[in-house]
């Protein structure tokens, strides 16, 4: 992460087409996007604008149809499914709108999950998971299952799970979408702190300008393209 010359994320003329022939739907139509290490970027745009598709590609869950995605200088498009999985487990953390925790599984076990796949020994797993839970203010809640936690707490467990591997990039898909204002602010405070204190790069999709305001930069999507910054200025003024 100390090499600032190579951006952590770089999209070059990325397109993504779903389906074939007449049924083909172009979700991304040539996206260029550069995110430097340590940035906190909010992604906004109406539904159908391609931001979710873009997030899937950034998360290495999907690959571009054309164009290239460089993650820390590595071309993701040429990696196999398993190689992308390994990339995800080491460098990426995910936070979802619906939390996506394993039911009937304790907070500690949920947070430990990525470490299990990395093959960390049990003691290391426990210790790191506890540290991660402490970092999101959930010390003492280790043995509660998602059903016993509030929405805000569940999302914090999800954040702990995302950061337990000490990833380079945290991808958050509407992390506050299901939460009230007070809980949303708690979550945003945690994300801001992680970005500021630990230098984790954060890319966050959101519908709410209030939440986007926490980010240092906002990227707007429209019709499968990133809206150039001068146009946004213009729109904001209007």
């Amino acid at each position: 992460m100390d090499t600032t010359s190579v951006p952590v994320i770089e999209l070059r003329q990325v397109t993504k087409t779903f389906g074939r022939g007449t049924a083909a739907m172009q979700a991304l139509r040539g996206v260029d996007l550069v995110i430097q290490s340590g940035e906190f970027v909010a992604v906004m745009g109406p539904s159908g604008s391609g931001k979710s598709t873009c997030m899937n590609i950034l998360g290495c869950l999907d690959t571009p149809t054309t164009g290239s995605y460089l993650f820390q200088g590595v071309t993701v498009g040429s990696l196999s499914r398993d190689q992308r999985a390994i990339l995800r487990r080491h460098y990426l953390g995910f936070i979802f709108q619906g939390y996506n925790l394993l039911n009937r599984t304790t907070a500690l076990e949920n947070v430990e999950l990525p470490l299990i796949y990395r093959g960390d020994p049990v003691e290391v797993r426990h210790q790191r998971a506890q540290e991660a839970l402490a970092a999101v203010g959930l010390s003492g809640w280790e043995h509660h299952t998602p059903g016993e936690l509030s929405g805000g707490q569940q999302q914090r467990v999800a954040i702990a799970r995302a950061i337990v591997t000490q990833p380079a990039v945290l991808l958050a898909d509407e992390p506050t979408g299901n939460l009230d204002t007070a809980r949303s602010q708690e979550i945003m405070d945690i994300l801001t702190r992680l970005n500021f204190d630990q230098g984790i790069t954060i890319v966050m999709v959101t519908h709410e300008p209030d939440m986007a305001a926490y980010a240092r930069r906002t990227v707007h999507f429209r019709d499968g393209l990133v809206v150039p910054e001068h146009e946004i200025q213009h729109e904001g003024g209007a």
Partner: peptide
């Protein structure tokens, strides 16, 4: 969830 957080096939 497992696949997203990096489980191999």
């Amino acid at each position: 969830i497992r696949l997203a957080i990096g489980a191999l096939e």
